[in-house]
Amino acid sequence: MDSPIPSQASQFRPWPNQAILVKIFHWVNLISLCLMMTSGLQIYNANPVFGGRAGWHFPPIFLLGGWLAGGRHWHFAAMWIFSLNLLGYGLYIVITRRWKHRFLGSNDLKALQNSNNKKRVTYAWHRLAYTIIIPILLLAILSGLGMYKPAQLHWIVDFFGSWQALRIVHFTSVPIVVIFALIHSLLGLKVGGQRLLESIFW
């Protein structure tokens, strides 16, 4: 008996279509994050958070700026781009009411505990990741502003308890954001496959 021929619907699935603003937000996020991470490592090398000036340094291949002042210029320029892009995305999801489908709700918690629907559980994990990353990003921006203008924004330094605590919070926010990006991508792959990921940028 011949194997069944796949239906036309299964052969020609529609390509996921993302709004142009979503593509722009993702591209700006990706570029500004890369600029901030590489320039941030340049700043880190001038006075490592862990171990002082004698602490472990990152290799030049991962650095941007050439020296401390150059790293700072790149870092703060990219920070403004990232922050304004994040604000724009926040306004976008509020105006389009996408926030209703982005963040964790009581139904998602129930799905994580009881649902046997794998796709539903994946969406719930995605919303959990979106919800957790918001305070992390706010802490990263707040701690960065405190390091940028410690005299003018001394209350930020006081909020974190000390200058060193401020630096540790800011530094550790970076791997958390990278982990979020990986989880975000893996969950997208699980739900929509390679086509969904490609549609976010192209």
Rank of each mutant, 00 (worst) to 15 (best):
Y148D: 00
V177H: 02
A165V: 06
G192E: 03
A181L: 14
L189T: 07
I179S: 11
D158I: 11
D158V: 11
L182C: 14
H154T: 09
F159S: 11
S185Q: 12
F159N: 09
K190N: 12
L187S: 04
F180K: 09
G193Y: 08
I176T: 08
W155I: 13
V178L: 15
K149T: 02
I156M: 08
G188N: 02
I179Y: 07
F160L: 08
V177L: 14
G161R: 06
I183P: 00
T172S: 12
P150L: 04
V177Y: 03
P175N: 09
F159C: 08
H170Q: 06
Q164D: 15
G188I: 00
G188P: 04
K190V: 00
G161V: 06
W155N: 10
F160A: 03
H154M: 13
L189M: 12
D158A: 11
I176V: 14
V177N: 00
V191K: 09
I168M: 07
V169A: 10
S173G: 11
W163G: 12
V191T: 10
V157G: 02
L189P: 01
Q164R: 14
F159G: 08
R167L: 06
A165K: 15
F180C: 08
G193S: 09
I176N: 05
I176F: 12
K149C: 03
L186Y: 10
V178I: 14
K149Q: 13
G192Q: 03
W163C: 04
L166S: 01
L153V: 01
L186S: 10
L153K: 01
Q152G: 07
V174L: 13
P150Y: 06
F180Q: 05
H154L: 11
S162P: 11
L187A: 09
I168P: 00
L182T: 15
I176P: 00
F159M: 14
H154Y: 15
V169P: 01
L189R: 09
L182P: 07
F180L: 10
K190P: 02
I183W: 06
V169T: 10
H184W: 06
P150G: 07
W155C: 07
H184Q: 11
F171E: 03
V169Q: 05
